[in-house]
Design a protein around this nucleic acid. Structure first.
Lengths: 323, 323
DNA sequence: GTGAAAGCGCTAACAG
DNA sequence: CTGTTAGCGCTTTCAC
């Protein structure tokens, strides 16, 4: 390529990158050769030399869960503008998967990783990624080892409890996701605080735990409905479970919201399509993704020295028909 | 790393790759050093040398459309088992995006690309990717330049027409997606053939065209309902549009399926959650993704010489409530 | 069974 | 404004 234009490879490199002045005539000659030979710079060689790959890794639980595509898409859209390509890894919330994916991405020398961990703590992730730029999409746990973006889940939950109480519904249960990982503990704690602040004392039997799936909600719903005294409302830690609960309620002949009010969490597109339309707490997935990507870009630009970013996005209740 | 174990880098390389015999004792020593230094092989250096990156690109229209995550997830799951990581690009069905993403991925020297093109033909894609392994997830157009996997859309459509006719519904319209790109022409043609085979002659006014969105369906539905004589059934080129049509029908006070039967296409998860539950044509997204990934793996293993694969997956009608 | 050395395609000093 | 040189971290002849 260089030989075709009769110059050194150095000059070609600089002509293409613009990192140092090249005379107009040689640049033109080079560009012509590039065109003629339809030359494509080899990014991997360049990566090896510059130790930057223009590539980032995104680790989420499961693309198939409707919440995640929105964050993935937003992440990609903002990173793409700066020329970054994104690897996506589905961890399924398993610790071993989270570690495996991190390693696989690091082996590719990604410039940064954005992760919504289910099991790993920010400190553990930092130990694995070394000094690679890292943004963790999970509530601050005191370890200032990464930039963080998260949502104020408690806010929407409090709003929802207030909404139910305002409607005269005070017997409120909670269907948590797995309570030891991910958003589970935070949402459950937020709910406990909210009901307490409202002066309520729901019995322990009204807080259940299930996987974040429609089936999980179905089974938990059946369990709840078999109780001798059951709540008038059930708040769920995500929409899929809430839809499963509605399945169970419908199967038991209950009217929603008259016999059982149901509140979801996330506000996935389907929430507005089911019948009755699901009252839920809007979780700003796209905004979260965009904020994570921006934080990462900022870190990449500023280097490891800058203070860790901490951005928290609000959630809010969306009142529809189910509560 | 090598020095720590007191051997040459060559031996380390071979110990780790297993490409040539290494004595048990040295291998053990090397593994111990690897562990101690928590050494991670640099895939990009290895890529530069071997000119294979263990990376593939996946180009789809939009992760945010519920059909695609299922294919993306399936693709990743099978490629992951062979150690491949996947770049995902959202083209939004725009020609310029399709080209831009292809180039971006090729610049990263992906080993292969899987693409469900909306505007590019297989030949055009081949021209761009050169000799990179390529599988196109789109019906065969006669250009044998790529491995192909697609779905027999006409089959499900024929089944649906038959189903409607069996129920005494013979006035059938069709809501197509953009009819010049992607699955649009195929599904429309399939429908034309199916109604003709059934001896029906729907007027031109009953075939509409809209973007593949809920809003597209809503507007098309309104348009259809404003017609002086309207069909008793509307088949739609995807579920999102079908849901929009149901919105329009409900707003106009029509009963579904009594006044207007609605059939979707894709069978996204939401189809089973809306009310009335959507009768639709099941589009095997996960199977498609898995088949694409397998085809790619096969090509990567066999080299460019082997005959192009052509696998077609059946679609089938899923009867629920809306028709 | 092991090592030395070359080189993948590029960029970044360092000269001129 | 341009060229020479070294080297990123690995794999692969080739030699022992």
């Amino acid at each position: 390529v260089a030989s075709d234009a009769g110059v050194s490879v150095t000059t070609v490199s600089h002509a293409l990158s613009g990192k140092r002045a090249v005379s107009e005539t040689t640049r033109a000659r080079i560009l012509r050769s590039v065109e003629r030979l339809s030359y494509q710079p080899n990014v991997v060689a360049s990566s090896l030399r510059r130790s930057t790959t223009q590539t980032v890794g995104l680790l989420i639980a499961d693309l198939t869960n409707p919440y995640y595509p929105a964050v993935a898409r937003a992440v990609q859209d903002v990173l793409e503008r700066d020329g970054y390509l994104t690897f996506i890894g589905n961890t399924d919330g398993e610790r071993s998967s989270e570690i495996r994916w991190l390693r696989a991405m690091l082996a590719r020398s990604v410039d940064g990783v954005i992760m919504q961990p289910l099991t790993l703590s920010a400190g553990e992730i930092r130990d694995i990624v070394g000094d690679v730029a890292l943004v963790v999409a999970r509530e601050d746990d005191g370890e200032a080892t990464a930039d963080r973006v998260w949502t104020d889940d408690a806010r929407g939950i409090t709003e929802a409890v207030r909404h139910l109480v305002d409607r005269g519904v005070t017997e409120i249960g909670f269907l948590s996701g797995p309570s030891d990982v991910g958003p589970g503990p935070g949402r459950l704690a937020g709910w406990r605080r909210a009901v307490q602040d409202a002066g309520l004392e729901p019995p322990d039997a009204w807080v259940l735990e299930a996987p974040y799936t429609r089936d999980g909600g179905l089974h938990a719903g059946q369990q709840l409905l078999a109780l001798p005294t059951r709540p008038r409302a059930l708040m769920c830690a995500n929409d899929l479970m809430a839809i499963g609960v509605m399945d169970a309620a419908r199967a038991a002949g209950l009217r929603i919201p008259a016999d059982l009010a149901v509140v979801g969490f996330d506000d996935i597109e389907t929430a507005d399509l089911v019948s009755p339309r699901l009252t839920t707490i809007h979780n700003p997935a796209a905004e979260l993704g965009a904020a994570c990507a921006s934080a990462l870009l900022g870190r990449l630009a500023d280097g490891p020295g800058a203070a860790p970013a901490r951005v928290v996005l609000p959630t809010r209740l969306v009142v529809r028909e189910s509560a």
